[in-house]
């Protein structure tokens, strides 16, 4: 039984990928005992003991490296933790920094390098897109209202106003653009990005790079129905040859290691790169459901085994997310609050 810790077990309206990863691991051939890493005692995954065997509260990554490492070593001591699969952007830099130390303590992972992780910054998309032969929507980085006005005069409305790493709002007027500029700058800092809106199909591809230019499988999808937060609720598999080639070129060009997701807009034959996520997306169970168990393959890679690489899948498989209810004892919540674990 491999003890694997997985974070992102916050299956809420903006769900983390953790439970999808765990479902995949449980359906794989490698026997696992999943341990949930949570940042809040209310994260639903804590209470789903048919998926998550044990759950631990983690210190916020912003508290620094020492408390984070100590907590993981504590879990190692108590549970015999062997592998960790981090699934949240905010914790990834810490896990990447700690990867070799954790490995020395017997906690394996399979993560992008620091340099690969930096590629997700939106001001790096241009160079990535150019290198893999696709486009990006015209994007201008601005740090003041004057620069914002200049950028707006070059683009036509609507425009996207984006933070360097997070958040994207669509502005239809200069007043709206200004308001979003201030709110994104206050929350995520400078520069703020002003981006042309490209009309087309929003498509996504998920995969796991082997770190040597190859990969352990890809899956391309289109989101058919999204929530008000832009999160997938219904989706369908697609076999967009240009998109899949772009993903393979991406993995090859950067020798990508670990999970990734590319968000792309397809306009006829043209592809526009919109976002790179250096981790599994929350809909990762879709890949498992069509027979490409990427979480299990990543686990195998972390364990130093050679994962499967086949990734034939049919177009037209449907993904349906749904809500569910659970009634349980207050005791579980009590343990999480008082002991930080259950």
């Amino acid at each position: 039984m491999i003890k694997v810790a997985v974070s992102g077990i916050n299956a809420v309206d903006n769900p983390g990928p953790g439970l999808g990863i765990i479902k995949g691991l449980r359906q794989g051939k490698i026997p696992v005992a999943p341990i949930g890493l949570a940042y809040d005692a209310m994260e639903p995954g804590i209470y789903l003991d048919h998926l998550v065997e044990r759950a631990y509260l983690m210190p916020y990554p912003s508290e620094g490296e020492a408390p984070f490492l100590n907590r993981l070593l504590y879990i190692k001591e108590k549970e015999g933790l062997e592998v960790v699969i981090p699934a949240l952007d905010a914790e990834l830099p810490l896990f990447i920094d700690l990867e070799s130390r954790l490995s020395a303590y017997g906690i394996k992972s399979f993560l992008p390098t620091k340099e690969q992780f930096r590629l997700r910054a939106k001001d790096r998309l241009q160079e990535v897109a150019r290198r893999i032969g696709i486009k990006i929507p015209q994007t201008l980085a601005v740090t003041s209202i004057k620069e914002l006005e200049e950028a707006l005069s070059e683009l036509s409305f609507p425009v996207m106003i984006k933070g360097l790493f997070y958040k994207a709002l669509k502005a239809y007027t200069p007043a709206e653009a200004q308001q979003y500029f201030y709110s994104i700058a206050a929350e995520w800092g400078y520069p703020v990005l002003v981006q042309e809106v490209v009309e087309g199909e929003e498509v996504n591809v998920v995969g796991v790079g082997d770190g040597e230019g190859g990969h352990f499988g890809l899956l391309a999808i289109k989101k058919l129905w999204i929530t008000s937060l832009g999160k997938i609720w219904t989706g369908v598999t697609i076999t967009h040859s240009g998109l899949l080639k772009a993903a393979e070129d991406f993995v090859r060009a950067y020798a990508w290691r670990g999970a990734f997701e590319l968000e792309v807009i397809a306009q006829d034959e043209d592809l526009y790169l919109v976002e790179i996520n250096p981790r599994f997306p929350a809909w990762i169970y879709f890949a498992v459901g069509v027979g490409i168990n990427l979480p299990e393959r990543l686990l195998a890679a972390a364990l130093g085994q050679e994962p499967e690489r086949s990734w034939d899948y049919p177009a037209g498989k449907l993904y349906i997310r749904f809500t569910d209810d659970l009634v349980t004892e207050l005791e579980v919540f009590q343990h999480m609050v008082t002991r930080g674990e259950r």
Binding site: E201, K222, V236, I238, T239, A315, G316
Partner: peptide
């Protein structure tokens, strides 16, 4: 395009139906 006898058309490249 995948075309069903019921008149349902699915485009496997774009996911549109």
């Amino acid at each position: 395009l995948a075309i069903s006898e019921e008149g349902f058309i699915f485009d496997p490249e774009t996911g549109n139906s």
